[in-house]
Amino acid sequence: MRNNRNSLPERRWFLGLAIVGLVGAAVFIVVMILTSDSSLICPTEPIYGEMPKAQARVQEDYNPTTIQLKAILHYATSRIVPQQSLAEIKISFDVLKSMGRPCNFLVFGLGHDSLMWASLNPGGTTLFLEEDPKWVQTVLKDAPSLRAHTVRYRTRLRDADQLLLSYRSEPACGPEGAHLRDNVECELALHNLPDQVYETEWDLVMIDAPRGYFLDAPGRMAAVYSVAVMARGRKGSGVTHVFLHDVDRRVEKVYAEEFLCRKYLVRGVGRLWHFQIPPSNDSHTSQSFC
């Protein structure tokens, strides 16, 4: 009985801290959305070519006021906060704000932060790629306006070292003329993505999936490689901003240094690295990724 009485204030103290943390996270989302300038809520304009299906849904699903108010309501009433820290989120937020226009934003992973990412890119195209179809249905049940596709990965984390050693001997994996669509020869290539992924030039890419914390998980090897190919193949001007989360893990760090390149690393906070990758025709690395 004594132990129980003594533990009651501790439980109340812990609960109080948890509530403060949740309220703080909600306030952070609200402040970021409401204090962002008008450049984040510009009317949608075609970016690097027409995307009829995506543009047709902008008014219905991505009305700036609607998507931002949904995010505010969601995070203000939820006990679940985004996976990334405030400092990590702010890196991506600052880039989105600096672009001065709606962006093409590709996110590997669908989760509790997805509504936030979409709300920070109003009028733009934010697309999520997720490995678990059941999880997609769970998330979309509460946020049906989000755009998400299921991805099937061919890789396993246990094979990460072997894939890194062997990809150089496979011509289909090489940096010169590297491609993704229907590239079944290169195990690191995401060859079966929706057409929209291949046909869009992505301004920003967030890699926070698939799972990479147990040996039978897909790991992020194919995601990192494929994003490098996308960025190098960019036809429009400017760089591709790539954000890689969980760089405290060995595989993420090694693959980032092999394909995203240290020389393109512009900032790192916590477990997040931010790269600015130029098109291959703007660099002198046609013989290698780095």
Rank of each mutant, 00 (worst) to 15 (best):
T155Q: 07
F128G: 00
E252P: 07
S36I: 00
L260K: 04
L22R: 12
S78H: 12
D94A: 07
P9G: 13
P64H: 10
C173Y: 01
I207R: 05
D142K: 15
D61I: 15
F108D: 01
V23Y: 04
L110V: 02
K235E: 02
R57N: 14
P210N: 05
L15I: 10
L110C: 05
V139Q: 10
L106W: 04
P194H: 10
L190Q: 06
K263Q: 10
S114D: 07
D142M: 13
S280Q: 12
P82W: 11
R5N: 08
A87S: 11
C173I: 03
E50F: 09
Q137I: 04
P175C: 03
E130M: 05
M32Y: 01
Q196N: 01
M32L: 15
Y167M: 15
P46V: 14
R168A: 08
N192R: 13
V95S: 05
Y225P: 05
G212C: 09
W202M: 09
L165V: 02
G219S: 05
V227W: 05
H241L: 01
L96P: 01
S7F: 13
E185F: 02
P52I: 06
L272D: 00
D246A: 09
R158C: 06
L190H: 06
A209K: 06
C103Y: 01
R152D: 07
L188Y: 00
F28M: 13
L115T: 03
E60A: 15
F289G: 01
H74S: 12
G177P: 10
R154F: 00
P9I: 13
I89A: 06
A222E: 13
W202I: 00
L120D: 00
H284F: 13
V95T: 06
E88L: 08
H179I: 07
P102M: 09
M221P: 00
L146I: 12
A25M: 11
P102C: 04
D142T: 14
L146K: 07
L260D: 01
I207Y: 08
S98Q: 10
F243R: 08
E252C: 13
G21W: 07
T155M: 10
N4W: 11
G124W: 00
P278F: 07
N281Y: 14
T44F: 03
H112M: 08
G100T: 09
K70M: 08
R249V: 02
R250K: 13
S169E: 07
T44E: 08
V81F: 08
M1R: 14
T155L: 07
W117G: 01
F93A: 04
F214M: 06
Q137E: 12
D161Q: 14
R234K: 15
N281L: 08
A143Y: 02
N4M: 14
C261L: 08
D248C: 06
Q84I: 13
K53Q: 15
P133W: 03
N104C: 10
M1E: 12
M221K: 06
S286L: 14
H74W: 14
A76G: 15
L204H: 06
Y167K: 11
I277R: 04
V184I: 10
T138H: 09
L110D: 04
R101E: 03
L106F: 06
P122C: 07
S7A: 14
M32H: 04
P278K: 09
T66V: 11
Q276P: 00
L73T: 13
T240A: 03
E131T: 05
A87E: 15
L96K: 04
P144E: 09
L115Y: 02
D203N: 14
L180Q: 08
L34V: 12
A76I: 10
L110A: 04
G236V: 08
